[in-house]
Amino acid sequence: ELVLALYDYQEKSPREVTMKKGDILTLLNSTNKDWWKVEVNDRQGFVPASYVKKLD
Results as ranks from 00 to 15, higher is better:
Leu2Met: 11
Leu2Ser: 08
Leu2Pro: 06
Val3Tyr: 13
Val3Cys: 14
Leu4Val: 15
Leu4His: 05
Leu4Cys: 10
Leu4Gly: 03
Leu6Asn: 03
Leu6Ala: 04
Leu6His: 03
Tyr7Ser: 08
Tyr7Asn: 07
Tyr7Met: 12
Tyr7Trp: 10
Tyr7Val: 09
Tyr7Cys: 15
Asp8Cys: 05
Gln10Lys: 12
Glu11Gln: 13
Glu11Phe: 05
Glu11Ala: 15
Glu11Val: 06
Glu11Ser: 15
Lys12Thr: 13
Lys12Asn: 10
Lys12Ala: 12
Ser13Val: 05
Ser13Cys: 11
Ser13Asp: 11
Ser13Gln: 08
Pro14Phe: 09
Pro14Tyr: 09
Pro14Ala: 11
Arg15Trp: 15
Arg15Ser: 12
Arg15Met: 14
Glu16Arg: 04
Val17Cys: 09
Val17Gln: 04
Thr18Arg: 06
Thr18Lys: 04
Met19Val: 10
Met19Leu: 11
Met19His: 00
Met19Lys: 00
Met19Phe: 10
Lys20Gln: 10
Lys20Leu: 08
Lys20His: 12
Lys20Val: 10
Lys21Leu: 06
Lys21Arg: 11
Lys21Ile: 06
Lys21Asp: 02
Gly22Met: 03
Gly22Asp: 06
Asp23Ala: 08
Asp23Arg: 03
Asp23Trp: 11
Asp23Tyr: 05
Asp23Asn: 07
Ile24Ala: 04
Ile24Gln: 05
Leu25Ile: 06
Thr26Asp: 05
Thr26Trp: 14
Thr26Tyr: 13
Thr26Met: 14
Thr26Asn: 10
Leu27Ser: 02
Leu27Ala: 02
Leu27Asp: 01
Leu27Pro: 00
Leu27Trp: 01
Leu28His: 06
Asn29Phe: 07
Asn29Met: 08
Asn29Thr: 08
Ser30Asn: 10
Asn32Lys: 07
Asn32Arg: 09
Asn32Thr: 06
Asn32Trp: 08
Lys33Leu: 10
Lys33His: 11
Asp34Gly: 08
Asp34Lys: 11
Trp35Asp: 01
Trp35Cys: 06
Trp36Asp: 01
Trp36Leu: 05
Lys37Trp: 14
Lys37Val: 13
Val38Arg: 00
Val38Ile: 07
Val38Glu: 00
Glu39Ala: 13
Glu39Arg: 11
Glu39Tyr: 07
Glu39Trp: 08
Glu39Lys: 11
Glu39Thr: 10
Glu39Val: 11
Val40His: 15
Val40Lys: 15
Asn41Ala: 13
Asn41Gln: 14
Asp42Pro: 06
Gln44Thr: 11
Gln44Gly: 06
Gln44Cys: 11
Gln44Met: 12
Gly45Ser: 02
Gly45Cys: 03
Gly45Asp: 01
Gly45Phe: 09
Gly45Asn: 01
Gly45Val: 05
Val47Asp: 02
Pro48Arg: 03
Pro48Asn: 03
Pro48Ala: 02
Ala49Leu: 01
Ala49Trp: 02
Ser50Gly: 12
Ser50Met: 10
Ser50Cys: 14
Ser50Thr: 09
Ser50Pro: 07
Tyr51Leu: 14
Tyr51Gln: 07
Tyr51Trp: 06
Tyr51Ala: 13
Val52Thr: 04
Lys53Val: 15
Lys53Tyr: 09
Lys53Trp: 08
Lys53Ile: 15
Lys54Leu: 13
Lys54His: 09
Lys54Asp: 05
Lys54Tyr: 10
Leu55Val: 11
Leu55Asp: 04
Leu55Met: 10
Asp56Arg: 11
Asp56Glu: 13
Asp56Phe: 11
Asp56Gly: 13
